[in-house]
């Protein structure tokens, strides 16, 4: 179900045109993108001399893994999308908590990340390693 016109069987097969990305366009876009990244880095280096202060404590409640302390769309929070949970179970996706700050408040939100993402790989490996020790 792709959220097009249908409540039911609106599946439509359109004969696809080959995606015709112009290699010249691709090359020039790539170059521009890299320039923006480069420029951003340099700008930051100029702006910030000295070390940034550290402000990266993980709130304890995240580790408790409970549902009661979260703000916003917390774990199983008001998004309450149970179908999502079911889908995720046994699928390629892994649930993670995302920490964000709203002003000075920390919030935890739930998100699904593909199992093969490097982010996940590292926590998995670490977890496994720790178990072995």
């Amino acid at each position: 179900d792709v959220g097009s016109a249908s409540d039911d069987d609106d599946e439509v097969r359109v004969r696809q045109k080959a995606p015709d990305v112009d290699p010249l366009e691709e090359a020039s876009f790539d170059q521009e993108l890299r320039a923006v990244v480069q420029e951003s880095m340099e700008q930051r280096r100029l702006e910030l001399r000295g070390r940034p202060t550290l402000n990266m404590m993980i709130p304890m409640n995240v580790f408790e893994g409970s549902m009661k302390d979260h703000h916003g769309r917390g774990v199983g929070g008001e998004s309450g999308d149970e179908a999502l949970d079911e889908d995720a179970a046994g699928s390629k996706d892994v649930q993670v908590k995302v920490l964000v700050k709203r002003g000075n408040k920390q919030q935890t939100k739930q998100m699904y990340i593909p199992r093969d993402c490097s982010l996940i790989q590292s926590t998995k490996q670490k977890g496994a390693a720790e178990l072995e020790e």
Binding site: I58, V62, F63, V94, Q95, V96, K97, V98, L99, T108, M111, I113, L119, I120, S122, T123, K126, G127, E130
Partner: peptide, 8 residues
């Protein structure tokens, strides 16, 4: 991500 938890 955090080293031990599924927190990003």
């Amino acid at each position: 991500s955090a080293k031990t938890e599924s927190v990003v």
